[in-house]
């Protein structure tokens, strides 16, 4: 999921948001998610949903991308939404043949579905299209430990390489008349493939490490970036604070 949302640079540039300091976007996403999980009323959450969808579209997320990425989320949620009404004890809401759906179970399932969708939409809206390199730099400037920042930066760089290696290797398997079947041969082949990708990745990591040390790397990157906190960020923070306070106060009053 993190890859689907955070490394979503395939969303393309988002001119309005790209003007901001990426730190603003990260802090905003964090604040919004905290508010979303704090709100208890399903009504308030449901009212916020179309608003966030509109914001996402207005800030340049294509409707098709939005749908595709949300579909991933619904896949994860399906199990919960099906199981909760059946398993949470409480007064009966309705019954389907031998199955009874409990009132608190349905409530909880609805609330969780709304929260997860809202949080996913918010992260997609605020962080989608943020280049992994800018994201890494912003995290470093927010005081995230340098090891984690390195992990983000390296993951962004090497995920694509590993994916390409996997694709090349799958092609060579197909060229030798391999087809996926339900068989021991298929399982063994895929296991060998995964094993081989791991071995390749480790060897590549060692080569990269050696090459970096040959260029005098001593465990610290000098992060070069030009982002800074400006008037646009202040306006953005103000607008966001209002946007977040409205549902929070409404929730407290209901």
């Amino acid at each position: 999921m993190s890859e689907t949302f955070l490394c979503a640079s395939d969303l393309g540039p988002r001119p309005r948001l790209d003007r901001l300091d990426p730190r603003s976007r990260i802090v905003a996403a964090l604040a919004a998610v905290v508010v979303i999980v704090t709100i208890r009323s399903s009504l308030v959450l449901a009212a916020a949903l179309p608003l966030v969808v509109l914001l996402a579209l207005a800030t340049g997320v294509a409707a098709a991308d939005l749908g595709r990425r949300l579909l991933h989320v619904e896949g994860f949620l399906l199990v919960l939404v099906v199981l909760l009404p059946l398993t949470v004890p409480g007064p009966e809401w309705t019954s389907l043949g031998p199955l009874t759906l409990s009132r608190p179970g349905v409530d909880r399932a609805v609330a969780i579905a709304l929260r997860v969708n809202l949080a996913a939409l918010t992260i997609l809206t605020l962080l989608g299209g943020l280049e992994p390199v800018r994201l890494g730099h912003a995290l470093a400037r927010l005081g995230v430990p340098v090891k984690l920042v390195h992990l983000v930066l390296f993951a962004a760089r090497f995920v694509t390489l590993v994916r390409e290696a996997a694709r090349r290797r799958l092609d060579t398997l197909r060229a030798r008349a391999f087809r996926r079947r339900t068989s021991l041969h298929t399982l063994r082949t895929l296991a060998h493939l995964v094993g081989r990708l791991l071995v390749d990745a480790v060897e590549r990591a060692e080569r990269v490490d050696e090459a970096m040390r040959c260029r005098a790397f001593a465990g610290r990157f000098a992060l070069i970036d030009t982002d800074h906190y400006g008037p646009a960020d202040r306006r953005f923070a103000g607008a966001l604070a209002v946007l977040l306070l409205v549902p929070l106060v409404t929730d407290l009053l209901t």
Partner: peptide, 16 residues
Amino acid sequence: FSPTVIEDVAFGPLNL
């Protein structure tokens, strides 16, 4: 991609 040479050479015939 197989761990050993013999396994890798046998991969194609197994697919056949």
